[in-house]
Amino acid sequence: MKIILNDRALLKISGADSEVFLQNQLSNDIKKLDESSAQLNAFCQHQGKIISLFWVMRYEGDFLLSFPLDLLEKIQSRLKMFIIISDVIIQDVTKDFCQFGIINETHEGAFTIKGDLSVVIEKFNHKGEIKTNSIDIWRKACIDSELPEIFSITSEKLVPQMLNLDIDEFGVNFSKGCYPGQEVVARLHYLGSAKRRLFAFESSFEINIGDLLYCPSSKSAKARGDRYKSSGIVIFRIKYNSHFYCLATLDVELKDEKITLNNEQGSKLKRIKK
């Protein structure tokens, strides 16, 4: 199943120092990236909070970074700040290529992301309109696979552990060396288990990215007028077959408790258990 991902930006990183540059900026070990995988990486600020998540791919001797389109301007300017005198060129090639999501199929030149999910990068053909399956099918598959995403509304709010990037070092390598925020991320890792993790939920009612999760039984949830201390946040959502699904962070100790959106009277979320 081939699905065009027209909601994603694409940057090309080229130049003699491109690999070293990315190794110094991102959370995963770029040196371990092969030519058939899309490696998940966190691009963090100095406090260890994620600015964006990238699918990083080796492509024709260069690197491609795929991420949500609404972060393009922010990411481009931020990355260019760190070039200094390095031989690195950053180009926006979003309109030069088509990105296709592939579910449970084998395609020549595909980059595996996670499980049965992969991405194909093709140079844009201006002849005719591209027709593929609905992008909602891809988004639902991402939620089923618990593949996290960061959009502008959640940028600089979460550390990698909250998105399970540290589990099996899927998105964070703890022996690769320094990158922005590395000390904070490593300290959280070696201090013990993460208190907040990523989970999948469903609901019959509307869910939006940025909605807060509330647990009335949480000891730390204190009412302040009509505002509550949240126990998590929605990072990705989809309406699929008249039902809502999402990925959200949540305090681990509350995973089996009653969870509602935004306040005690909000719509109830049901955790999808694997």
Rank of each mutant, 00 (worst) to 15 (best):
Glu149Asp: 13
Leu117Trp: 03
Ile113Leu: 02
Asp166Ala: 12
Leu69Cys: 07
Asp70Tyr: 05
Lys176His: 00
Asp92His: 10
Leu71Cys: 03
Gln99Trp: 10
His189Asp: 14
Asn133Ile: 04
Asn104Ala: 12
Leu188Trp: 08
Ala186Val: 08
Thr106Leu: 07
Asn133Lys: 12
Glu183Pro: 09
Ile153Arg: 07
Ile83Phe: 09
Ser66Lys: 08
Val159Gln: 14
Ala194Phe: 01
Val120Ser: 15
Phe111Gln: 03
Cys98Lys: 08
Asp92Pro: 15
Asp62Met: 10
Phe82Ala: 10
Ile143Gly: 02
Leu191Thr: 13
Arg78Gln: 09
Glu73Ser: 14
Gly115Pro: 01
Met81Pro: 06
Val93Thr: 07
Trp55His: 11
Asp87Tyr: 04
Phe174Ile: 14
Tyr59Ser: 01
Asp116Lys: 05
Gly192Asn: 11
Val185Ile: 07
Val185Pro: 03
Gly171Asp: 12
Lys131Leu: 00
Leu79Phe: 11
Ala186Glu: 12
Phe54Thr: 11
Ser77Pro: 02
Gly115Tyr: 03
Glu108Asp: 10
Asp136Glu: 02
Leu188Ala: 14
Phe63Pro: 01
Val185Phe: 02
Phe124Ile: 07
Ile113Asp: 00
Leu191Gly: 04
Leu188Arg: 13
Lys114Tyr: 03
Gln91Ser: 09
Ser134His: 12
Ser134Val: 06
Val120Gln: 07
Leu65Lys: 07
Lys157Thr: 11
Glu149Gln: 14
Leu72Pro: 04
Leu64Gln: 13
Lys95Trp: 10
Ile137Ser: 01
Trp55Thr: 13
Asp62Ile: 13
Ala110Met: 14
Arg58Thr: 00
His107Trp: 04
Val159Asp: 13
Gly115Asn: 03
Thr94Val: 08
Ile84His: 08
Glu108Ser: 06
Met162Lys: 10
Phe151Gly: 07
Phe82Tyr: 15
Leu165Cys: 00
Ile121Cys: 04
Ser134Arg: 10
Val120Tyr: 10
Ile143Leu: 06
Ser77Met: 00
Pro180Lys: 09
Tyr190Val: 09
Asp168Ala: 07
Arg187Ile: 14
Asp136Met: 03
Glu108Pro: 08
Arg187Tyr: 07
Leu72Gly: 05
Thr112Ala: 06
Val184Gly: 14
Leu147Tyr: 09
Leu69Thr: 00
Phe111Asp: 00
Asn125Pro: 03
Asp166Ser: 09
Phe100Tyr: 11
Gly101Ile: 09
Pro160Tyr: 10
Met81Ala: 13
Phe54Leu: 06
Leu165Lys: 06
Leu147Gly: 11
Pro148Gly: 09
Glu129Met: 00
Asn125Leu: 02
Gln76Ser: 11
Ile103His: 06
Glu183Met: 10
Glu169Phe: 02
Gly48Trp: 01
Ser152Leu: 14
Ala186Ile: 03
Ile143Ala: 01
Ile153Gly: 12
Ser152Trp: 05
Asp166Phe: 06
Thr154Trp: 02
Met57His: 06
Ser52Val: 15
Gln161Val: 15
Asn125Phe: 04
Tyr59Ala: 09
Tyr59Arg: 04
Ser77Asp: 14
Leu79Gln: 10
Asn104Lys: 08
Lys49Asp: 02
Ser52Gly: 10
Ile150Pro: 15
Thr94Ala: 10
